[in-house]
C-alpha cells in the first residue's frame, strides 16, 4: 500500500482532492454549473431585494413617470413613476417561489399516484392513468387559463391551475419508471425477506427512479415560471399593483416608445427560464449519460 502511494507521488500524478474533483466536475458539466450559478446569483438578488433596490416596488412618483434607464433608476420607471429595477427584483419573490411550490406539489401528488399505479397495477392503475390521460388531452396553457378564469384571478388560483396541468406528467413518468424498477431482483429480495408492499415501493423502488424526475423537475421550474407569468400577462394571475414579471410586461404592451417598461421584466423571465433549462441539460449529461 505504502509503496503504490509513493510511486504515484513520484510520477507526479495529481492527488485527488475535493477541490480538484469539483473543478473537474465543473469543466465536464459547464451547463449545470453555469445554470446553477445564474439561478443562485439571481436568487440572492431577489432574496435581498429590499436591501438592494433603492425604492420600494410600489412607491409611485408621478413626477418621474416613464423615465428611461439612468443611474438613478437602473431600469427606468413605469407609467406611475415606480422603479422598474426594484419591481423586477421584487417580482422574483413571486415567480420563483410559486414555480418551486407548483413543481413540489405536482411532483409529490403526481409522483405518489404514478408510483402506486405502476407498482400495484390493476384497477387503481387504470383509474389514475385515465384521469391523467384526459388531463393531458388539454394543451397546458389552455386548461390553466380556463381553470384560473373560473376560480378568479389570483396567485393562489394560478398556482392551483398550474398544479392541475402538471401532476399527470409526473404520474406518467414515475409510473413508467416504477414499472421497470419493480422487476429488479432487489425487489424480489426485499419481498422474500417479508417486507410489506408499500414499504418496498417507498424504500426500494422509488429511490431508484429519481434521475429522470430530477431532470424534468428542473426543466419544469422554468416552464411554470413561464406559465404563471403568461397567466399574469393576460390578467389572470397576480393582480396589480403587486409586482410580477408577466403583468409588468403587460404594462409595457402599449408603450412602444418606452421600450424599457416591457424589456426588463421579460429579460428576468428569460434569464430564470434559461438557468433552469441549463441546469436540466447539465443534470441530464451528468446523471443520465446514455442520452
Amino acid at each position: 500500500m505504502a509503496n503504490s502511494l509513493s510511486i504515484s507521488a513520484a510520477e507526479g500524478l495529481p492527488r485527488r482532492t475535493w477541490r480538484r474533483d469539483l473543478l473537474k466536475h465543473m469543466r465536464r458539466y459547464p451547463s449545470l454549473w453555469l445554470g446553477s450559478s445564474l439561478l443562485g446569483l439571481f436568487g440572492l438578488l431577489i432574496a435581498f431585494a429590499p436591501l438592494i433596490a433603492r425604492y420600494p416596488p410600489n412607491q409611485q412618483n408621478l413626477a418621474m413617470r416613464l423615465k428611461p434607464p439612468s443611474a438613478e433608476h437602473l431600469f427606468g420607471t413605469d407609467e406611475l413613476g415606480r422603479d422598474i429595477f426594484s419591481r423586477v427584483l421584487h417580482g422574483g419573490q413571486i415567480s420563483l417561489p410559486a414555480a418551486l411550490i407548483v413543481v413540489t406539489i405536482s411532483l409529490t401528488i403526481g409522483g405518489l399516484l404514478g408510483a402506486f399505479a405502476g407498482f400495484f397495477g390493476g384497477f387503481i392503475d387504470d383509474l389514475i392513468m385515465r384521469i391523467a390521460d384526459v388531463t393531458l388531452a388539454f394543451p397546458a396553457v389552455v386548461l390553466a387559463l380556463a381553470i384560473s378564469a373560473l376560480l378568479g384571478p389570483s396567485l393562489n388560483n394560478a398556482i392551483l391551475a398550474a398544479c392541475v396541468v402538471l401532476w399527470p406528467e409526473y404520474a406518467r413518468l414515475i409510473r413508467s419508471q416504477v414499472i421497470v424498477a419493480r422487476t429488479f431482483e432487489y425487489v424480489t429480495a426485499a419481498r422474500s425477506l417479508g417486507r410489506r408492499e408499500v414499504g418496498i415501493l417507498l424504500r426500494h423502488v422509488l429511490p431508484n427512479t429519481w434521475t429522470p424526475i430530477l431532470i424534468k423537475a428542473a426543466l419544469d421550474v422554468g416552464s411554470i415560471i413561464l406559465l404563471v407569468s403568461a397567466l399574469s400577462f393576460i390578467g389572470l394571475g397576480v393582480r396589480p399593483p403587486t409586482a410580477e414579471w408577466g403583468s409588468m410586461v403587460a404594462l409595457g404592451r402599449t408603450k412602444f416608445y418606452q421600450w424599457w417598461v416591457a424589456t426588463f421584466p421579460g429579460l428576468a423571465i428569460l434569464v430564470s427560464i434559461l438557468a433552469c433549462n441549463l441546469i436540466s441539460e447539465g443534470l441530464r449529461n451528468w446523471l443520465d449519460p446514455r442520452t
Partner: peptide, 16 residues
C-alpha cells in the same frame, strides 16, 4: 436552448 427560454408574449412585443 435560448429559443426554448423565451417567453413568447415578450418576444412578440420586442419584435413589434
Amino acid at each position: 436552448l435560448l429559443n426554448g427560454s423565451l417567453p413568447p408574449f415578450w418576444t412578440g412585443l420586442i419584435f413589434l
